[in-house]
Write a protein that binds this DNA or RNA. Structure first.
Lengths: 115, 115
DNA sequence: AAGATAGGTGACCATATGGTCACATGTCAA
DNA sequence: TTGACATGTGACCATATGGTCACCTATCTT
């Protein structure tokens, strides 16, 4: 349907990052890796089930990887997807920042048309 | 409620980037600035109203700025919010040991390449 | 003035999303 | 082996989101 959606992985990563709770969970794991679900649950005002769903989304996006040991499941941060999205999507917007901004200011200030 | 949501602007930017159509619109504006709604509409398989809603979201997030001239409205890309999100959020995840991690990932995924 | 063009608004609908609960499985510790 | 602990599943609900439509205003052209 949407032919311009070429990278489903990108979409999963962007959608995973769209929720503030999930970004906060990533922040927690960034501060310290290898936390269990229970530990993460205690850091958020939300039931265990909500946290589970969020962790599932993060895991599907590849942003979090897990390791099971006994009855516990440890969660680790995986920055690779963010890095990849950054490299092939965000970089191009930030690299020409200065030039684009200067052009934009010129556009807004003068009534010069671009055509 | 969510005390860890300190930056509403971040949230708006992330949510704006979460939709593939909106990312495509940004790509269009990245390729060439100053397009009208009608021009953007013709590039997407969607009615004008859907495009309007998406542009509104992008504008609220600060990712797109507009200039009205007569009956036309021109849309310009503003990379500053992406730059800010990148600087204060993505950088910390990517700068750490990403290179080593990516190498490790490649080693794990294709150990036949190694020895 | 009349018609075409560009854009805007509010209602509306289907689906996606965030979150909870009852219940269930597997694991550790005494 | 009993009970507490850690995690998992499916149903369920309220709201957010993506998208369309009828209708509307403003501007340009002839």
């Amino acid at each position: 349907m949407v032919t311009y959606l070429r990278r489903m992985d990108d979409d999963r990563v962007f959608k995973a990052l769209a929720d503030p709770t999930r970004r906060f969970l990533l922040d927690l794991l960034f501060a310290r890796d290898g936390r269990t679900l229970s530990e993460l649950e205690s850091a958020v005002e939300m039931t265990r089930y909500g946290v589970m769903k969020h962790l599932r989304v993060l895991e599907d996006a590849g942003l979090v990887v897990t390791r099971r040991s006994g009855r516990e499941k440890f969660h680790f941060l995986n920055p690779v997807p963010i890095r990849e999205v950054h490299d092939r999507w965000i970089d191009k917007y930030t690299e020409r920042q200065v030039t684009a901004l200067m052009n934009l200011k010129k556009e807004l200030e003068s009534d010069h048309d671009q055509h």
